[in-house]
Nucleic acid binder design. Structure first.
Lengths: 206, 206
DNA sequence: CTACCGATTAACCACATGGTTAATCCGATG
DNA sequence: CATCGGATTAACCATGTGGTTAATCGGTAG
């Protein structure tokens, strides 16, 4: 929520530099340059590099999680809900493909601080609770009907996020490990968009 | 392949510090302290922080990839091969749970340099070729027999690695996003060890 | 015109950090 | 016991970095 144009340009530049270098390796000078602004302005608007990183992270996380959680807490039938969640998340990922890697890496170097940030920005526990309750009820119904094996919402969610986020976050690694070029990456991405929901349901079927 | 005890202690200390802080945020002094050694010794054995990071990364990657690739190129039947690969990789991950996150983050900040490192250490392309050829033949046989839908080895491999590595690499993130505590993490890990191979085969079944 | 005020900058500072150097330690070798 | 050489260290250095400050710019109100 920047209030001035310069402030927004700084945030944007910081986002780019942080995402491609990582916060620790990012230089404030580079951010200033990319924003076309004097380095002192960063400290004028945001008080320190750390605060700036907080602002960037919060905006990024705020653009990534709520939509997904919202979709997962909606009242669509299970299959459609999963399919919608995949679509929503793939859109978000397509818009900022390096975000998950960034979040992952930052969360790794200091889990406590950043999870605290997230908590102050949104009611994580409540959202999670709603999502889980809604999902678990639907899963249990499917289990009852013999279409799924007994399963927790957590398991389903972790599988979903793994298949959804990892190929983006680890694209460089997969490039080396699996020889994944851009074309193959796109092919896999469109497969996920079309098939991932059903893939998961089949995998968890009895 | 350190030749002296001190050298090995330094490598070990560097590994710990790099893994928990990330290379950019790691301080050579902290590494020296953790190795119980003067800072100048790091430069005596390894010429610079960057070279030290290379050594650490190579050792780590060398402990993570070859086993997996070896298993995947073996002549076990498909299902058993996948199951064995899961086991091998889960063992490796259990031994050093933070490694994938480390590799991921380092690969992200400078993909070219580190993939070059990997290439000079092992014949990545050849290994990958063997793995893919072997896997693809087995997949095609299963497709022929109507037990799998048409599928590339790449797709299978990416799905495998996603489900296998992401829960480790993103454990902090999942702790926040899915409320995953240690007990739940262990439960999911043992599920993967038992069920992941079959899960994938069901998911890719027609 | 000028007095004012937030936005912006050039110049500067303290300091942490990676890296170097010259000296010292210590076991082996003669 | 002397000395030789690799291992190890204390002290030091150059530099890049985040952060500060005092001055300036530029629009606006009186």
């Amino acid at each position: 929520m920047p209030t001035t144009d310069t402030e927004a340009r700084i945030l944007e530049a910081a986002h780019h530099v942080f995402v491609r270098r990582g916060v620790a390796a990012a230089r404030t000078q580079e951010i200033a340059d990319e924003a076309g602004v004097n380095k002192a302005l960063l400290h004028y608007y945001y008080r320190s590099k750390a605060k700036l990183a907080d602002a960037v992270f919060l905006r990024a996380a705020g653009a990534m999680f709520p939509q997904l959680l919202g979709t997962l807490a909606s009242d669509l039938p299970l299959r459609e809900k999963l399919h919608a969640a995949v679509g929503v998340e793939m859109d978000a990922l397509a818009a900022s493909p390096y975000l998950p890697g960034y979040i992952l890496c930052e969360l790794r170097s200091d889990p406590a601080r950043l999870s605290a940030l997230l908590h102050e920005a949104m009611p994580v526990e409540r959202l999670r609770g709603e999502v889980f309750a809604s999902l678990q009820a639907q899963i249990d119904a499917e289990v009852e009907a013999g279409r799924l094996r007994p399963l927790t919402a957590q398991e389903l969610l972790v599988a979903l996020m793994s298949m959804l986020i990892f190929p983006h976050a680890a694209s460089h690694m997969l490039e080396v490990a699996a020889g994944l070029n851009e074309a193959a990456r796109d092919r896999l991405a469109s497969w996920r968009r079309r098939e991932l929901a059903d893939f998961l349901l089949r995998g968890f079927a009895p």
